[in-house]
Computed example of a mutant assay.
Amino acid sequence: MKEVILVNYTGRKGGGPINALEMAKGFLTSGHSVVAVLNKDISNKKDWESSGFEKIIFLDSFSSIFDLLKQVLFFRTLIGKKVVQPLQGYKIKFIYCPMVSLFTYRINRLFRKEKVCVVNHDPIPHSGDKGTLLLNLFGMQSLYRTADCIVLHSEKFLDFVKMQYGKEKQVQYVPLGPQNVKGRGVPKLNYNPDDINFLFFGRIEKYKGIEVLLKAYQKTKEQYSNTSLSIVGNGDFSSYSSLAAKVKDCTVVNQWIADEEVGDYFLGNNLVLVLPYLDATQSGPVLIAYQYGIPAIVSDTGGLKAQVNEKTGLLVEAGNVDSLAEAMLKVCHNPDWIPSTKEGIQEYLEQISWKHSAKRIVDFMDDLNESGDGNGG
């Protein structure tokens, strides 16, 4: 019977599909066969289909509350059979859950004897996070409590998660890997090559510190005119519209960015990513910027401190407008700093390869099997 790693991820878009695919490819390049359970509308579906996995099981999405209720009530028929039957000829090495979605826990429970490794992206929910309550209703906390291994992408929260779930040996730190985003190779924004071009990229959320960014940029602009700010991302921007309108050379692209266009926003000269988060675990946009050799200015909070060092960017005090403005002006007055970070960025990316991370997870799960530790499904 062929042994496979079962990747259980039923989300559709955002950073989840990228992280799930890259880790699955990491397992594959490490010599392990992979079967994936995915949403049929996952944004990078073609990449999954062309990556050489053993089998992919696509599940139907829900487009209304009625559809969701139907899947909940008739889970065994609508989802369970579609997952279990195609896997009857395989031996599952372990189940890997790269991010929790609504049916992650219930799909795992179809294979109660198998060991489970789950990634906890946000051990402490972001301020204003509305999705955690719904996920908890669908068993997220039960998933973490019963998991044989919890993976964190931020080393800062190891002790917190160990205490929260009573797991001493089963909580492991594995850095978030390169995002490997795509683009069409045509810049989406016209960055002036004579300016220092600051870029915010990501969902518009209260904890992202957009107000701090706009105020800091305004201070920067008053002292150094050859600058621009671009804010790109989906979400409610209404709270910041009036402030943004008062700032010169500020471009706002307030919409969902398709996967195949993400990289095109990172094409330009003298680009610096700015993420003034008020609280955070780790950040996908930092790694996207690194992919394009772009340094980052980020808040000194949560797991961001592990992603940015003196060779790859600058750290500022979270929520402090003056601290951020000072860092932005530092770059403006020393533009040669931007290309000087490329070597440090490359070194960091080499340290966090998905293949290396996949091997660490497999080795840990093998050790659990040999020692008999874990929760046993």
Results as ranks from 00 to 15, higher is better:
Ala289Ser: 12
Glu261Arg: 04
Thr251Val: 14
Gly284Glu: 00
Asn270Thr: 09
Tyr240Ser: 05
Tyr290Cys: 02
Lys221Ser: 10
Val298Leu: 08
Leu213Asn: 06
Val262Ile: 15
Leu278Gln: 13
Tyr207Ser: 14
Glu211Tyr: 02
Ile210Val: 13
Asp249Ala: 11
Asn254Ile: 04
Glu261Ala: 06
Gly209Thr: 11
Glu211Leu: 02
Asp264Gly: 01
Gly202Phe: 08
Val253Lys: 14
Arg203Lys: 14
Thr220Asn: 02
Leu275Asn: 07
Ser225Tyr: 07
Pro295Cys: 01
Ile294Lys: 03
Tyr265Ala: 10
Thr220Arg: 00
Leu275Ser: 10
Tyr292Phe: 15
Gly235Pro: 13
Gly284Pro: 01
Glu205Tyr: 09
Asn226Ile: 03
Glu261Asn: 14
Gln291Asp: 05
Tyr207Asn: 15
Gly263Phe: 08
Ser283Cys: 04
Ser228Phe: 00
Gln255Asn: 12
Pro276Asn: 07
Gly235Met: 06
Ala244Ser: 09
Ile231Phe: 11
Tyr277Arg: 08
Tyr292Lys: 13
Tyr265Leu: 09
Ala216Ser: 13
Tyr292Thr: 10
Asp259Trp: 03
Glu205Ala: 15
Leu275Gln: 13
Phe266Pro: 13
Asn234Ala: 15
Asp236Lys: 11
Ser225Trp: 00
Lys215Arg: 14
Gly263Trp: 07
Ile297Ala: 09
Ser283Val: 04
Tyr224Thr: 08
Gln223Asp: 04
Gly284Ser: 01
Val286Phe: 01
Asn254Phe: 02
Pro285Arg: 06
Glu205Cys: 10
Ser299Val: 13
Leu229Asn: 10
Lys208Glu: 07
Ser283Ala: 09
Leu273Val: 04
Leu273Gln: 07
Leu229Ser: 10
Ser230Glu: 06
Ile294His: 02
Tyr277Gln: 11
Tyr240Arg: 00
Ser239Lys: 06
Pro276Phe: 03
Ala296Asn: 03
Cys250Pro: 01
Trp256Tyr: 15
Thr220Met: 10
Leu287Thr: 01
Ser299Met: 13
Ser299Phe: 12
Gly202Lys: 07
Leu213Phe: 09
Gly263Cys: 07
Ile210Cys: 08
Ser230Asn: 10
Ile204Trp: 13
Tyr277Lys: 09
Gln255Lys: 15
Ser241Ile: 05
Thr251Glu: 08
Ser225Met: 06
Thr281His: 15
Tyr292Glu: 11
Val252Lys: 00
Gln255Gly: 02
Tyr292Ser: 10
Phe237Trp: 00
Ile288His: 01
Lys206Asn: 13
Val262Asp: 12
Ile231Ala: 11
Leu278Arg: 13
Lys221Gln: 10
Val212His: 04
Lys248Ala: 11
Tyr224Glu: 13
Asp259Gln: 11
Thr220Ser: 05
Val212Ala: 03
Thr281Lys: 01
